[in-house]
């Protein structure tokens, strides 16, 4: 049974004439890493919104880790996200007035599941994760996140997405603000950590050069019958 399973997902933004998403089928196995490419407006971000439970989706269309996201409402969806999904964004991933370790520990504030999975000492776990992502300089970790470089910020964001071993990590163009060298090392570090924690990774990007680094790669246009208008 796949970790993520999408069946006949149709979604329209309010006011849109045609559905942005019309996705007959998409599966992601546990521990698998999937690259999802495609130009802007093809529905990549909308897909992530449906998966993260920010927007309402029809019942039985999205299932994550055996839970039908479509039947969850409001706060329950937020809790589900906190427990099962780690997210990394393009930029602005961190709360600027918290330091790196505090940012990494944020999901543990909202999810007892992930706090329990972070071991007896979540702070230690957070430092270990950051260290695995090549962030182990104490002076960097104690500084407010706003004083970190973009590359450092993205690695902190990755550590946050991974802490407490969520089943699914969603990455929305996390490398677009990084330079060429940093991109590849970030992606390989991220994949390594996802593998270590057993998380499935859905990596969305328009940068096709990264596609070969993943287990599988798809173009959203090939699986999405809607979109293009957005």
């Amino acid at each position: 049974m796949p970790l993520l399973s999408i069946r006949d997902l149709k979604f329209s933004w309010p006011g849109a004439s045609a559905p942005t998403l019309d996705l007959p089928s998409l599966d992601l196995a546990a521990g698998e890493s999937l690259f999802l490419g495609g130009p802007s407006g093809a529905g990549k971000s909308t897909l992530l919104a449906t998966l993260s439970g920010v927007v309402d989706v029809p019942a039985k269309s999205v299932e994550i880790d055996g839970t039908d996201v479509g039947v969850l409402r409001g706060a329950a969806r937020d809790r589900f996200r906190a427990d099962h999904v780690g997210m990394i964004f393009q930029v602005f991933n961190l709360v600027p007035w918290l330091n790196a370790v505090e940012n990494v520990l944020l999901p543990c504030r909202f999810s007892t599941v992930r706090r329990d999975r972070s071991g007896s000492d979540p702070i230690h776990t957070a430092r270990a994760l950051l260290s695995a992502l090549k962030l182990d300089d104490a002076s960097v970790l104690d500084k407010p996140a706003s004083s970190l470089s973009v590359g450092q910020q993205q690695r902190v964001a990755a550590a946050r997405a991974l802490i407490g071993k969520p089943g699914l990590v969603l990455a929305d163009e996390p490398t677009s603000a990084l330079d060429e060298d940093a991109k590849e090392s970030f992606v390989s570090l991220l994949q390594q950590e996802c593998r270590d924690s057993g998380a499935s990774l859905l990596f969305v990007s328009h940068d096709k050069s990264l596609a070969p680094l993943f287990d599988r790669s798809l173009d959203i246009r090939d699986i999405n019958a809607g979109g293009a208008t957005r």
């Binding site: 706060a75 809790r79 996200r81 964004f89 504030r109 946050r160």
Partner: peptide, 16 residues
């Protein structure tokens, strides 16, 4: 707004 979005992404409800 970004800050609040980050909190939301890690599981905070709008109520929180």
């Amino acid at each position: 707004r970004r800050e609040f979005a980050i909190f939301r992404s890690v599981g905070a409800t709008p109520g929180w």
